[in-house]
Simulated scan of single mutants.
Amino acid sequence: MIDILVMIKAFILGLVEGLTEFLPVSSTGHLILADHFLHFRQGPITPEIAATFEVVIQLGSILAVVVFFWKRLWSTIDFREGKARNKLNIFHIIIGILPAGVLGVLFQSDIKEKLFGPTTVIYALIVGGILMLVAELYSRKTTPATVTLDQLTYKQAFVIGLFQCLALWPGFSRSGSTISGGLFVRASHSVAAEFSFIVAVPIMFGATALDLYKSAHFLTMDLLPVFLTGMITAFVVALIAIVSFLKLVSRLKLIPFAIYRFIIAIVLLFFIA
């Protein structure tokens, strides 16, 4: 029987996941920190079950993007005459996910074995923060050439996809890397953020589906309330976070998020590493 304390911890972790997954601050770093203070991996929650739980709550965040962007995602596969011209379509998404998808498949086990840990996450937080600062400074010296998603070119989508490869390093942040890539190809902050969320769907869904397939035996009925609590919380909070971030990113830019990353890296270094 799962006690109320475990359910509260599941709720808090779902809250952290939903709030940070699509912000350029690294959900991995925040989950490591939250797990450290909550002591989630004890009692009935073994390390293997906790790892499966993190995959399940990530699924909640992915579903939030699907719900928020469902019209845009559906329109990318509308190939009726004239519909796919001069607009974002499925080929932009394929081009955008191809680099990270290939590398992820080839090196998934190596990434989990060698790059997933508090110390490497701290390095990723710092390096990712520096990249965001450089991208922000670059964008201030140029005028955005792409101010709507439908103006995004295949070349821009591919370059953003190359930057998404950096997110394979846990702690780097998928949105941080892809939004930075978008700024480097002279997309506006809002376009870079929106495309970042859209290309995250197939990449994250594929990785999550594979992890769930491998750890499906941990999804037992007695643990179902824990998984559902975390996933539903992550879904609701991620939906709110996406709406809020898209409204704020053009005004706040990336610098506050980069500084915040440095602070989290210091906290992780002090408490974890």
Rank of each mutant, 00 (worst) to 15 (best):
K71P: 04
V56Y: 08
I4W: 14
A167H: 01
F158A: 15
K155S: 15
S139T: 00
T142G: 00
V25D: 08
L166R: 06
I57S: 09
V237N: 15
I160F: 02
G182E: 04
L212G: 13
V134S: 08
P99R: 02
I272A: 05
T233E: 03
S244I: 12
L88E: 14
I57Y: 13
E113K: 14
T46D: 01
L168A: 10
A124R: 15
H217C: 03
L5G: 11
P99E: 09
I264R: 01
G129L: 02
K83E: 06
P24K: 07
F158I: 00
V201S: 07
L125S: 13
E113D: 07
I93S: 05
G171M: 10
I62W: 06
I122K: 09
T153K: 11
L269E: 12
S196Y: 09
F197Q: 10
L137A: 13
F79Q: 07
L98F: 12
P202H: 00
L254F: 13
L13P: 07
S27N: 12
V25F: 13
A124F: 12
G82C: 10
I240Q: 09
V67N: 09
D110T: 01
V201N: 08
E194I: 05
F195Y: 14
P144R: 05
V199D: 10
V121A: 14
T143Y: 08
K141W: 00
F37K: 00
P118T: 04
G171F: 13
P44Q: 05
H36M: 11
V67D: 07
M221I: 09
F69T: 04
A100C: 04
L152G: 11
V56G: 03
K141T: 06
P256I: 03
I32N: 05
L38S: 08
V201Q: 15
K9E: 10
W169R: 06
T146C: 11
T233G: 15
V121Y: 11
W74Y: 12
L23G: 13
I263W: 12
S75I: 07
S196G: 02
S27D: 06
K155R: 12
G101E: 14
R41G: 00
F79W: 07
R85M: 09
V185M: 08
L133A: 12
L59Y: 01
I94C: 10
Q164A: 01
P47G: 07
I77A: 14
H92Y: 05
F184K: 01
E17W: 09
L137F: 08
F218P: 00
G96V: 03
S26E: 05
E54W: 12
E48P: 00
V65R: 10
L131G: 06
I8W: 04
V66P: 13
E136M: 04
L219W: 07
L131K: 03
T220W: 00
S188H: 10
H217L: 06
L228Y: 00
I259V: 15
F107I: 04
F271L: 15
G171W: 09
P225K: 02
L31A: 07
F68P: 15
L133Y: 09
I97W: 03
I272F: 03
R261K: 11
T153C: 03
L210F: 08
I266N: 04
P99V: 06
L168V: 14
I97H: 12
V102H: 02
A234Q: 04
D222C: 08
I126H: 02
Y260E: 03
V16M: 15
K9Y: 05
L252Q: 11
A84W: 01
F172E: 04
T28E: 11
R186Y: 11
M231S: 15
